[in-house]
Every structure is written in C-alpha cells, then in structure tokens.
C-alpha cells in the first residue's frame, strides 16, 4: 500500500499541487524533445529515401559542428594553427553546408554505391564504420578538445508568472519549426521533392520512370547533412562541441522507433513525447529509484509502446507476405 502510494499517488499529487513547476518541467522536456527530433529527422530522411538506417547521423552532427567551429575560429585544418581569417557565422555556416554536401557525395560514391542491394544489416554496419571514420577524421582535422560554439543565438531567460523560460530554447524551437516547414515545402512542392517522395515509395518504380537514383541519394544525404548541421549548432551552442555530441544519436533512436522509421511528423511528435516523458519521469519518479533513469527510460517507453504498435506511431503499416 505504502509502495503503491509512492509510485502512483504521490507524484500525481505533486504535479497538481505545484502546477507551475510541472509546467516548467514539461516545457523543459519539450525543448529537449525538439533537440531529439532534429537528430531523428536526419535518420528518417535517409531511411525513407534509401532504406539505410544511418547510424552515423550523430557523428554527422558532430562533424558539422566541428567544421563550423574550425571555420569560425580560423583554424588551419590538420595543424590546429589559428592563422586563417576568422569568418562570420553565416559565411561559416554556408561553407560548412558545402562541406556536408561534399561529404554526402563522398559517402554515396565510396560507401553506398558498392553496397547497393545488400542486406539492411550490412548497410547498417557500414554506417557504423562510417561513424568511426568521421569521428577520427573530425578529430584529426580540427583537434579533439572541447570547443565553445557561439553563432549569435541570444541567451538569457525571462519569467511568465512563475515559469522560467530560456530564450535560447525558444530560438531552438523556432529554428527547428522553420526547418521542418522548409523541408515540408521542399518535399511537397518542388520537382526534386516529388522525385524524393517517389524514390521513398518505390525504388524500382522511380527508376523506371527515369528518376536518377544516384543524384537522389546525394540530395537526401545532403539534406540530412543540413539537418545534422542545425542539430550540431543547437547542441554545440548548448553544451560545447565535443565527442559526446555524437552520442545524441543514441538518444534519437527511441524517438525514431516511437514515431516510426518512415515518418517525418513521427520524428517530431516522437521527439516531443520522449523529451517530456523522460523529464517528467526523472523529476517525479526518478527519486524513488535513486535517479538517473533518463538514460534508459526513453527506451523502455518506446519498447512498451512498440508492443502495442510495432510500426511506431506514424510508421507505414507493416504488411507481411510469404
């Protein structure tokens, strides 16, 4: 009875008694959820278009952030000398995007093309290999110490009633929303976007009506590179550019299975659910078991959810035939 009270009643009573604190927790959860969504989005884009489960998405974000910091501080690649002119943020961002496009082309050429038509697990393993390569490459080119990243997103906080809100979080949410709208418009209304959706639907049908698959893959990986860049900027500004940035990929995986591998809205909604769920669980139920449940709570939440809906919230319905 005592135990049930602790687990089921006390946290709920807490929530109702101090609603402003609860709202603050939920708000904080939503904000970290936005960050998860950004990473998950990159996964979904690539999985939809090429059927590759790209484990290196987190390292993409790290690599983009490293490149951005390197360009902004005028670091000469491979030497750690800071003798190049320092670039303003927007120039550096554009240059980094170009680097990410170059990376996408290289990945398509070197990794994906020779592996066309292999098993999914082989493709998956190759992206783990890719993650190793990029990790080593990023550190070799730009050095491995923790770097601060400031692209001019305003910081500080203000109060609404009793609820404290970080201005940076609002910006992050705004930029993420903007990115999603841009992507949605791009996919819905442009020629390339239509081609991308066609490829996502059916590779062979798309090929047979004359859509060049190679270019599509390069475009998709470039877009994923752009998403990684945005995610890298957000996470990098928040907690510094360092190796642990690549681990956010692991955080994005439960988001992915909750939302479904093939759904862009799923990535967003899944991210928000996981973000809020994990913050609320940590704050209200965490103390019961000595805390730090954030690491696995998202996975267990996703796992329980999957038992009832194996394809995720918005994933394509799984139809199995012999």
């Amino acid at each position: 009875m005592e135990f049930l009270n602790l687990v089921l009643v006390a946290p709920i009573v807490d929530m109702i008694e101090y609603p402003s604190f609860f709202i603050e927790v939920v708000f904080g959860g939503l904000m970290s959820g936005v960050m998860y969504s950004l990473v998950a989005l990159g996964f979904v884009l690539i999985f939809k278009a090429s059927g590759v489960f790209n484990f290196s998405q987190g390292v993409f974000a790290l690599f983009a952030a490293l490149t951005l910091v390197g360009l902004m501080t005028g670091t000469v690649p491979f030497t750690l000398n800071k003798s190049l002119p320092e670039l303003p943020a927007w120039v550096a961002i554009i240059l980094t995007f170009i680097v990410m496009i170059g990376l996408a082309i290289a990945v398509e050429r070197i990794v994906l093309r020779p592996l066309v038509n292999q098993d999914h697990i082989i493709m998956f393993m190759s992206t783990i290999g890719l993650a190793f390569v990029l990790e080593g490459l990023g550190d070799t080119i730009w050095g491995s110490e923790v770097k601060a990243l400031d692209v001019g997103i305003p910081t500080g906080n203000f109060l609404i009633g009793e609820i404290q809100i970080q201005i940076f979080d609002l910006w992050a949410a705004g930029i993420a929303a903007f990115l999603v709208v841009v992507l949605a418009v791009f996919f819905q209304y442009t020629r390339t976007g239509r081609a991308l959706r066609a490829v996502a639907d059916d590779h062979q049908a798309a090929l047979s009506v004359g859509i060049p698959l190679k270019n599509i893959w390069i475009i998709v990986w470039s877009v994923a590179g752009l998403v990684a860049l945005v995610a890298g900027i957000m996470w990098g500004s928040k907690s510094g550019v360092q190796f642990s940035l690549s681990l956010i990929a692991l955080k994005a995986l439960p988001v992915l299975i909750l939302g479904g591998f093939t759904s862009v809205p799923g990535a967003i909604v899944g991210g928000l659910i996981i973000g809020v769920g994990e913050k609320v669980a940590e704050v209200y139920w965490g103390p019961l078991v000595d805390g730090a449940i954030e690491n696995w709570f998202a996975y267990v939440l996703a796992l329980v959810f999957l038992l009832f809906r194996p394809q995720g919230l918005f994933g394509d319905k799984i139809i199995e035939r012999v």
Binding site: P254, I257, Y299, A302
Partner: peptide
C-alpha cells in the same frame, strides 16, 4: 519476449533498452 511482435531494426533498438537498463541497474 518483445521479439515476437517487433522485428528488424525496431527490435535492434528495443534491445538497446536492455543494454542501458542493465547498465543502470548494476550501477545504482
């Protein structure tokens, strides 16, 4: 047990739950 309903990469991610949960358990 979840493997009956969950397949492929979904299962792979689900097994990560085991990894993180067990690590946490033995640590805490």
């Amino acid at each position: 047990i979840p493997s009956l309903r969950i397949k492929g990469f979904y299962l792979a991610v689900a097994t990560l739950a085991a990894q993180f949960f067990l690590s946490w358990l033995f640590n805490k």
